[in-house]
Amino acid sequence: MAKRVLIAEDEPSIVTSLEFLMRKAGFETRAATDGEEALSLLGTFRPHLVLLDIMLPRRSGLELCRLIRADASLAETRVLMLTAKGGHRDVERGLEAGADDYITKPFSTQDLVERAKGLMAAAGSASGEGQ
């Protein structure tokens, strides 16, 4: 069964590229272009990994990240933050909010895919024991 990746990103072209990359890596994807949409998809789609843009409209990536961490049912969901500013403050705040890793735009596609795979492998083994 393919692992599920939720792409929360408001730039359509970036969404397109991420969808392509994730599918190519063998994951099932859904995309949300704002925070609200992402939140509703979290419940229904139950992703293993969220590629979360920190600057989402309507509900910010940081807020979403905290909600994910607060939700026990999403304990095995990994969060990979996408930040465009690349400043220390953003990275710190992202990690404080509970992100597992972060990547700065523009990113190397190879790097992104490897990190996504790595995060899900760790989550898989952890959740595998639980299941």
């Binding site: 991420l18 465009a84 690349g86």
Partner: peptide
């Protein structure tokens, strides 16, 4: 500056991603 940076990074992200995709595939 950080806004400009952000605004610049956004299109650059797409350009780089698609270029790499096209290159790798």
């Amino acid at each position: 500056i950080s806004t400009v940076t952000h605004e610049l990074r956004t299109p650059l992200t797409s350009i780089r991603a698609f270029s790499e995709i096209l290159h790798d595939n």
